[in-house]
Structures are given as C-alpha cells and as structure tokens.
C-alpha cells in the first residue's frame, strides 16, 4: 500500500470539502482497501465518513424508505419493511458477497464498488479504466465475466454488484450532497455510466459529492424476483442476474420493471422490453420476443459469448415464474 493521510470527517460539510480537495472517502472499505493493497487505487488522502449520521433507515413522507448511505448491506437486507415490501432488494443483497462483507459494506459504498475485470486488477496489464489511454486487454483476452451490452472499444468491464440491480428495477434514487451543500436526486438507473471513451468514470459523481442516501419509492404491488447465475453456489459475482417487479391484471401483464446485472457497465434496464410485455398474455413466444429485444444489440467477445444464450434463458425463466397463475406476491 502506498502511504496516505487519514482523517475522520466531523460532519457532511467537512467530508465534502475534503473530498472536493482530492480526498477519497472510506466507509466500509471492503472494496477500496482491497484495491489499495494491490495499488490499483492509490489515494493520497482518506477521509473516514463512518461517524457521519447516515446509518438510519426511515420512512419517507411518500410512503417509501430512505436508506442512509452508511446503512450496512446486512442491516438493509434484514430490515423488516425491506423484507416485507421490497423483497427483491433483500434477495439481491443476500445474493452478494459473504456475511462478513455484508456486515461492513455500506449502501453508498456498494453503489461505488468497482469492476472485477481481471485486467483492471492486474497493474502489469494495460487497462483504460485504471490508466486511461493504456488500452483494453480484455477485448482480446480472458473475458468470461465481461459485458455483452453497452460496451465500447475502450472497455468491456461490468458493474459487478447485485444491490443496485434491484434498486434499478425498483426505480430508486441516489441522494447526493455536493461540496456546495446542494442536494440532488439521481435515479439509480442513471447513476452508473456506460464506458464510452471514459471508462475511468464509473458513475456520475463529481469531486466533493457525497452519497447521503438511497430513496425507495412507495412499494408497488406484484411479484418481485431476483435471480442470479454464477460460477459457484455462493460468494461469487453474477455472470447474469435479473431483478423483476411484475404485476398482473387478470391474465395479462399490467407492468414489468426488469433490470439485469453482470451484462454491462451499469445495471441494465431496457424500456422497450418492458413496453413489449405490458398488456400482453404471458406466453413462451412473448418472452422469446422480449429476449430478442433485450439482446438485439448484444455482442460477445469470445469467452463471454455464452452470456447471450444464458441471459435469454434467465429472462424467460424469471418472466415465466413471475407471471404464473397463483404466483404469490
């Protein structure tokens, strides 16, 4: 690890002003310290935000939930109201990492976790995300875990998390406070970026920005499902995951919010797929067309070609389960 200075933030203004001056926040630290040990990241200054008052889950006036940025993944997944009315979020969080990591990892930090691309982690290799302009080794290399949607010639890394995939399907928003003290709300689906020519930027945060909470809108009725496919039964990142919130009206689909993990540089949501489903009777043919739509622009890079067929099967399986007659909410 390269040397860094360490300071505890006293309050939000202290935290954001230090961050605006090039300091890096540390909360749970489970991803940042992993990367700092490998010198993939080398912050000069760490600002510990763990003492800030951001560890509460509270109800919003609208009937949703405000999850403080420092709420641990364990506490969020175990929160009684999250379990009752946002089960897809509990399931997604429980699908990720290990008990030890979920105890330490925070809501804000989880949103900011970085890709597990092998070449991003290997400082002997070129990587446009780690070192802009150096090239992308994954394009021609080992790319089993890499993106099939929304990638660029500069980067085919994926966003690795589960939590944000469920939050994307739930239309949650990230609450961000800037160094100037301004608070803004960004939909989770717009928080992460596609790589384009600047894969070094994972998300829309600017210097000095502090994530203060994630806001869940009032709960929707319908079936909620989180399905994750990975290389081992537990404690592994998704090759493909899917969060679904589907409501039926009689024998027709009334609404469908679908988000996918492990496929792109961000949790992937395709409104054209959802529009194609709404108002229709569930059928194998309909789900096949939904998969065609979702994967129309999909591209494999060799080792990850299988993800195209895998994603089709995951989509069809989850939609079949979600629209089954008598499916419990």
């Amino acid at each position: 690890m390269k040397p860094f200075t360490y300071a505890k933030a006293n309050d939000r203004a202290d935290a954001t002003s230090q961050a605006a001056d090039d300091a890096t926040f540390i909360a749970g630290g489970t991803n940042l310290l992993d990367l700092t040990k490998l010198e993939v990241m080398a912050p000069d200054r760490l600002v510990d935000i763990n003492r800030l008052d951001l560890a509460e889950i509270s109800e919003t006036d609208e009937g949703g939930l405000r999850i403080g940025a420092l709420v641990s993944n364990s506490d969020c997944a175990a929160h009684v109201r999250v379990r009752q009315v946002y089960p897809v979020l509990s399931r997604a969080i429980l699908a990720g990492a290990s008990g030890q990591l979920r105890n330490k990892a925070t809501t804000g930090g989880n949103l900011c976790q970085r890709t597990r691309c092998y070449y991003f982690y290997d400082t002997a290799m070129p990587c446009n995300k780690r070192e802009p302009g150096s090239g992308c080794q994954a394009l021609q290399g080992f790319n089993r875990i890499h993106a099939i949607l929304g990638a660029s010639e500069a980067c085919i890394a994926t966003y690795p998390g589960d939590m944000a995939v469920a939050m994307t399907a739930l239309d949650a928003a990230v609450e961000i406070e800037s160094a100037a003290g301004e608070v803004r709300l960004i939909p989770v689906r717009d928080f992460h970026r596609l790589p384009g020519d600047h894969p070094e930027k994972d998300n829309i945060l600017e210097a000095g920005d502090l994530i203060t909470a994630v806001i869940l809108p009032p709960p929707v009725t319908g079936r909620q499902i989180y399905r994750k496919v990975r290389d081992r039964a537990s404690y592994a990142f998704a090759l493909c995951s899917m969060a679904a919130v589907v409501e039926m009206d009689g024998d027709r689909i009334a609404s469908a919010a679908l988000a996918f993990g492990g496929l792109a540089h961000k949790p992937w949501r395709d409104e054209a797929v959802e529009a194609l489903l709404v108002g229709e009777k569930p059928s194998a043919a309909l789900f096949g067309r939904a998969a065609d739509q979702l994967l129309a622009e999909a591209r494999g890079y060799g080792s990850n070609d299988f993800k195209i067929a895998l994603t089709r099967r995951v989509l069809i399986a989850v939609l079949t389960e979600a629209t089954q007659e008598g499916a419990a909410a």
Partner: peptide, 26 residues
C-alpha cells in the same frame, strides 16, 4: 489478505467482519 477466505474473521461491536479489509484506525 483480500477478504476472500475468511481466516481473519473477528467480531467487532457484535458483528463478524474480515479484519484484513479494515484499517485499525477506523
């Protein structure tokens, strides 16, 4: 030393964590 094996697990304030992935000063 990267939070993958769990050999370093300790209990902090009642919660199990990987002691390798947190700084003592925190």
């Amino acid at each position: 030393d990267h939070g993958q094996c769990g050999a370093c697990t300790v209990i902090v304030e009642g919660r199990r964590i990987n002691s390798c992935l947190t700084l003592a000063c925190m």
